[in-house]
Write a protein that binds this DNA or RNA. Sequence first.
DNA 1: TTGTATGCGTTATCAG
DNA 2: CTGATAACGCATACAA
Lengths: 331, 331
Amino acid sequence: MGNSRVTLRRVAEIAGVSPATVSRVSRGTTPVSPEVRDRVLRVIEEHGYKPSHFGRALAERRHGALGLVFPGLSGPYFSELIQGFEAEALETGDSVLVLASHSRADTDATVLDLADRVDGMAIHGGTVSTDTIGKVAQQIRVVVMASEAGPAQASVSAANDTVKDLTRHLLVDHGYRRLAFVGMPDGSPDVTARWQAFLAAHKSARRKPPAEPIRVGLQQSDGAIAAEQLLDRDDRPDAVVCANDETALGLLLSALGRGLRVPQDVAITGFDDMPMAALVRPALTTIRQPIRELAATTARLLADPLDQPAGDIVLPTELVLRSSCGCGGVP
Amino acid sequence: MGNSRVTLRRVAEIAGVSPATVSRVSRGTTPVSPEVRDRVLRVIEEHGYKPSHFGRALAERRHGALGLVFPGLSGPYFSELIQGFEAEALETGDSVLVLASHSRADTDATVLDLADRVDGMAIHGGTVSTDTIGKVAQQIRVVVMASEAGPAQASVSAANDTVKDLTRHLLVDHGYRRLAFVGMPDGSPDVTARWQAFLAAHKSARRKPPAEPIRVGLQQSDGAIAAEQLLDRDDRPDAVVCANDETALGLLLSALGRGLRVPQDVAITGFDDMPMAALVRPALTTIRQPIRELAATTARLLADPLDQPAGDIVLPTELVLRSSCGCGGVP
DNA sequence: TTGTATGCGTTATCAG
DNA sequence: CTGATAACGCATACAA
């Protein structure tokens, strides 16, 4: 199990050619005479030669890798994001190095470390300080995801203001009186934007919004925690707008488990339109965002050699009306 | 935004010392006179010198990074696994590079590529072919997770045979007659072992198990898909053993959404004991496995310089009886 | 304590 | 088409 790798130079010796020629054969870039090529190829095969990444990285001054930084990666959202990113990176022959900063204190240091191993980095909104993003950006190319990044960096995000349409739908079309919002704006640019849209819809409908959101995380268990604060009291809201599908599902599960009827006793909506949203009963009313496309666009921005102008790309989202808001009668 | 990094040599020039001295100061390993040290340190600070990873990696012939390979990473299970792994790697100063092979065809190639960027690799069971694992193992140190790996590799997994106790509990203590198993044994060593334990419990209780499991994946939406096959027919099972909590929760949600009572109409159990299991109503009967410890043990095996004997470490698991199996009366 | 010289594995430049 | 030779950025015996 030794680390006894065969080096390029060794292959050259055995094949009786110069190191340069082995490099040429190995990379297939420059023309080499068929006979020499075959001979070298055979030696490579026999001795299991594999070019060393850092040797190549050092000489080429590029890593052939892209970094992807997340706050955490539980749930289908991040899974989808990574897949979209990897699929696109594959096109350009880049590897993907994923970093899940579980809101640890040393995240910034870790990100800086990663910056040293990749040619470009996609950073999810709310993961690292803008200060650190700046530092990374002056070293390698950076694209911010799910957050508008200001003039300095390029960014790709999805339109969160559709939450305004959703909230209006609840308020006006269905006539719900007491709405609640589940999600913690602080730290997540996406949630902040959704909470703002929720507020804006109340304002334009001349209705009084709740003073505060229910501040919980974005995982399903957080939806269950929100349920304890929301469902067990007398002035239960008659409709709840959740920051994402995960929490909406957690809330839905908790509501049903308490014997409440959805949407009759309480309406519930989400954001993302993950697979589970359509499968559950009642089917979840939500907002569809093109996660894969968001990731792919980001990867493309990172890989493309031509210098795009740093700007904010905002992908469209779509309101998906199902049963959990009260549409389409009782399922 | 240029890539104009300051090199060690440049720092040496500016500070008027030799490159070696800068290296010594930078690493803080060999003693250097205070005056020189301060001078060099100041230059490093002023010019923002950061040692290059590949330069160092090339010279030291190590990357200072560990690889972590997964089939996918949706859900709390993988999230927890990564956190446990990273926390431990942090101790030894290693970075963690995560690779999520979303059951793509080119996974093996990607893994081989990663093998070139790290000093050791943890591979989750059922992710890559044993053939590829072998190749990687003769290049760097490898530990297999959640799967017993045979004599060649070290492995760390959790005891799946507790599913036998769980199944017996359902069969004997509660007297359920028709059990079903949700999960796809093929491809996941963990699920295979759980299905085997499920079968074994039937055998030792002299009861006839179902001929086949409900072959779905491990995500929550798969639980909802299983529900369609399981809950809408006349000979509905009276108890369902799910391969993990995610699918159990998906099934539970679907059951409640259909107006079925749990556990009265159908009992449901899971595996993992994720946070949501205790929060949901009815609370989920499940098996607790020490995910974090599993990950930490793996990381330790990878980092430790002393050559552990390649062997299978099996961590204990614990049956957690709650309400969804019928225990403790109706919640 | 500090400097010099060499090696790490590969690519790039320039002759031939 | 092929071969020397010089980077690439850093660490480390060895010498001073």
